[in-house]
Design a protein around this nucleic acid. Structure first.
Length: 115
RNA sequence: AGAGUAAGCCGGUCUAUCGCGCCGCAAGGUGAGGAAAGUCCGGGCAGCACAGAGCACUAUCGCGGUUAACGGCCGUCAGGCAGCAAUGUUUGGUCCCUGCUACAGAGACGAGGAAGGUGAAAGUUGAAAACUGAAAGGUGAAAGGCGGACACCGAGGUGAAACGAGCAUACGAUAGGCUGCAAUUCCAAGUAAACCGAUGUUUGAGCGCUGCUCGCGUGAGUCGGAGGGUAGGAAGCGUCAGAUUAAUGAUAGACGCCAAAUGAUGUACAAAGGACAGAUGUACGAUGUACGAUUUUGGAACAGAACCCGGCUUAUAGGCUUGCUCUUUAA
RNA sequence: GGUCUCUUAGUUCAAUGGAUAGAACAGGGCUCUCCUAAAGCUCAGAUUUGGGUUCGAUUCCCAAAGGGACUA
């Protein structure tokens, strides 16, 4: 079981991100909003907390790390297929790790079922 | 002991498991703060410019020191404000030239003179009879009163300020070439040397001298519209962090810190009270106060590097050290 | 990251350092009308915040907060 999260698994590039948001399927799993798309290449993930909701950089960094950590520990739930996924933090409050972990698990399960 | 004040410091530690960035073949090494923040100053660094003259513009402003530099810091002088005090805070070139000082006030920055007093010109009144003359007018006609130009003396009051000044946009001294790492250099990819309008080629557009003018140089494009393409990477970023969707985290446990509760057959002090010996002692003592082992619960701030330094400013739980001041008690 | 700029009634804008901060629209009340609109009268409402300079700050200076523009 591979629980690492190296740099190759991060989604980057303005064009590819715009394409994902344009063509990908979306759903909400509080406090997250998820956007995903199936792909032939390796799985890449984007994690994001908006500046308009969290003005302090510390809080944004913390939430991003929580989401990334939760994904890293549960990424084997996705199965054999590869996806592009974007996790957007939605809630105005800063939630604990337990809440974020639950939401990530829920959304990963949903992705593997729907795709 | 309490309260205050000034200066300085700390900003949890360790272990286990799973992970991240960078360096390295690997083993391994290394990885955020006192403010990393605001971007308010200064410097390094980079690019452009640097024949000259003049005018602007911006910043600073008692004195001395410190520094690579500063508008910072340290010491000190004077004034204002707060405090019983220790101390804190704030202001600090000049008024020669150019201007400003509302309302009120006679007058407001050139002076001019108000109530009142002294003197006093013009004018007016006194002013009619009578005489003279064709008439108009003249003579009579002076004292005194009213009047108050003007000259001298000169308060009180108004107002922040009444001739004393204060202020800056004014003057003086000093400093500053301009722009900023999205600077700048290189690589890769892509496109549109096309179209429309205005203006211009010796009757000189535009550009450069990076604010303007003179002056000098250059000499055919320049500006706007609509439209097309790209927005990746490397260096800059070394001196023990260094990315470019942007690394330093998550979980569990232990210790330490803070707050509340608990309060040991515990310790110290006070003590109603009865007991024993006896005119004062001895042990006991319900109960109260303080200190407190232990246990339980909760809490732990402000905040995250993007070229780097020196300051300033702002945010900040809790704690530590030292100096000084005041109040109370004891010696 | 850097360079600038702005904050005044609910909204859009005025106001040499000078008296009670002005105007339009919006809002409340009254008149008119059978009712509404229009019109007329009237009322309330603001200098982003905290210091300083000044006799006196919307205005000048310093700090903070919140917007906006430009720059590869």
């Amino acid at each position: 079981m591979a629980n690492g999260f190296p740099k190759d698994n991060k989604l980057c590039g303005q064009m590819r991100i715009a394409q994902l948001y344009k063509e990908g399927k979306r759903f909400t799993a509080w406090p997250l909003r998820v956007c995903f798309q199936e792909t032939e290449e390796q799985t890449q993930v984007l994690v994001w907390a908006p500046k308009s909701l969290f003005k302090r950089a510390v809080k944004r960094n913390h939430l991003r790390r929580l989401m990334r950590e939760a994904y890293r520990l549960h990424q084997d739930m996705l199965g054999e297929k590869h996806y592009l996924i974007a996790f957007n933090y939605m809630d105005k409050e800063e939630q604990s790790y337990a809440v974020v972990e639950k939401a990530i698990c829920k959304s990963l399960k949903k992705i593997s079922e729907r795709a």
